[in-house]
Amino acid sequence: MRKEVLFSGFGGQGVILASVILGRAAAVYEGLYAVQTQSYGPESRGGASKAEVVISDEPIDYPKALHPDYAAFFSQEAYSKYLYTVREGAKVIVESDLVPNRDFEFEKKLEVLALPLTRIAEETTGLSLTMNILTLGILTTWTGIVGREAMEKATVDAVPRGTEQINLRALRKGFELGEKARKGLL
């Protein structure tokens, strides 16, 4: 089992943090192998930001994502730039408010979950910043790539002290949404 996950958006959306938490959940709490990498291009200074996680039950040879199995797009620029790298049939999460122009033709080959993630996060926790954690929640239950408990522990490890509860609230909201998506209710 080798799964490649891509997170992308713009600086400040917590793209890299999301990838670190996912990798940590898999590696530390699920006993899987995981590699997290991020781009250090000009993107990291304001433009499109990208991070990748490869998860596997055996040692990971090639550490980068070639054709992501799962992806999350938080901005139009990221969507336009990286959408076409995903594998056919990939599960893709799209921040629908921030990606107004979509390629529905291409999306036909994928499983796409388009939601106003930032808005939902804000409604759930009062903080739009928790959007990345919400997305992790969705990813967890929708794809089953890691377990809920692992994800919760990794989240608590990684977020700033004092914000654990808020972030867990966002994460659990995500679990809920992901569960629905898995059952085809979204």
Binding site: V20, V28, Y33, A34, V35, Q36, Q38, Y40, P63
Partner: peptide, 10 residues
């Protein structure tokens, strides 16, 4: 190398 330096793994 730069990749290894910044990459996270278990």
């Amino acid at each position: 190398d730069a990749e290894l330096a910044h990459m996270r793994e278990r």
